[in-house]
């Protein structure tokens, strides 16, 4: 099955420890923060490239975001992906899960579908983890979520995923096409291949689609298509550890600690 087409949904996120909230406007200050590819999406990409190694075919990266995402997504090309599709339009801005999954689904339809759609488990900025099932619903496809390993039967056109469950694991199977979400840290993403890196960064295939290219319903995209509004924003304690010293006899410390951890409920 050399025509196997895998789409990997990826997102560029600011490095978590560098995001701040403006105390007056209560808005996120992303400016100046370094970005990276959402780490779970790297696991999804590795999963896709592993399938391409075994079965051939091509891997496309699909992302929704501003043009500044482009150089980051090219990292995926340098890892071995074949094409980047960036859905970029100011109208897409402010999208919640409903609008995001709708837009991504339109993107997949625009590229005439895929045999497999891989996503990371969740994103480090919003951490909703609801993109994979939402996307599956829009496309009316089966979903295998939180899998740590995936195999495909090219002839029977079936995908099989291994999912960790309490005390063990289960193998789930579904007909392709299907949506699969990769468990965070389930594999080690390969480093960029420097024999193709220059080409990936200078000539690599990047297609940018705007709302009109997707024939998207304007009421379904961006802030307009999003039921959810952010009514407040605050900086939770910065990702510093609490560093609270507990004192007393071992018995007193044990009681104190278990109470603080909520383990005495």
């Amino acid at each position: 099955m050399t025509d196997l087409h895998i789409v990997v949904c990826m997102k560029v996120v600011p490095k978590t420890e560098e995001v701040r909230v403006n105390p007056e406007t209560r808005r996120l200050i992303r400016a100046g923060a370094r970005s990276e590819i959402n780490p779970p999406d790297m696991n999804a990409l590795e999963m896709a490239l592993g399938l391409k190694d075994r079965h051939g075919g091509r891997v496309s990266i699909l992302s929704m975001g501003p043009p500044t995402f482009e150089p980051y997504l090219r990292v995926g090309l340098a890892m071995g992906a074949d094409h980047v599709y960036l859905l970029s339009d100011p109208q897409f801005g402010g999208a919640d899960t409903l609008a995001t999954t709708y837009t991504l689904a339109r993107g997949i339809q625009r590229m005439d579908g895929a045999d497999l759609i891989l996503c990371g488990e969740e994103s480090s900025d919003g951490a909703t983890g609801q993109v994979p099932p939402g996307l599956a619903e829009w496309l009316d496809l089966p979903q295998l979520t939180l899998v740590t390993d995936v195999t495909i039967d090219a002839v029977a056109r079936r995908v099989c995923g291994r999912r960790e469950i309490r005390g063990g694991y289960e193998l789930l199977a579904a007909p392709m096409p299907a949506v699969v979400s990769a468990r965070t840290a389930c594999n080690e993403p390969r480093f960029m291949d420097y024999r193709i890196k220059r080409r990936a960064f200078e000539e690599g295939q990047v297609t940018v689609w705007r709302a009109e290219d997707l024939a998207a319903d304007e009421t379904m995209i961006g802030a307009r298509g999003s039921p959810t509004i952010v009514s407040g924003l605050d900086e939770a304690r910065v990702r510093e550890r609490r560093r609270e010293f507990l004192r007393g006899t071992p018995e007193e410390i044990a009681q104190d600690l278990l109470a603080r951890l909520g383990l005495l409920d």
Partner: peptide
Amino acid sequence: GFGGGVLALLEM
């Protein structure tokens, strides 16, 4: 969000 660094209140 952001690894626990930012806290958001959401409504629909």
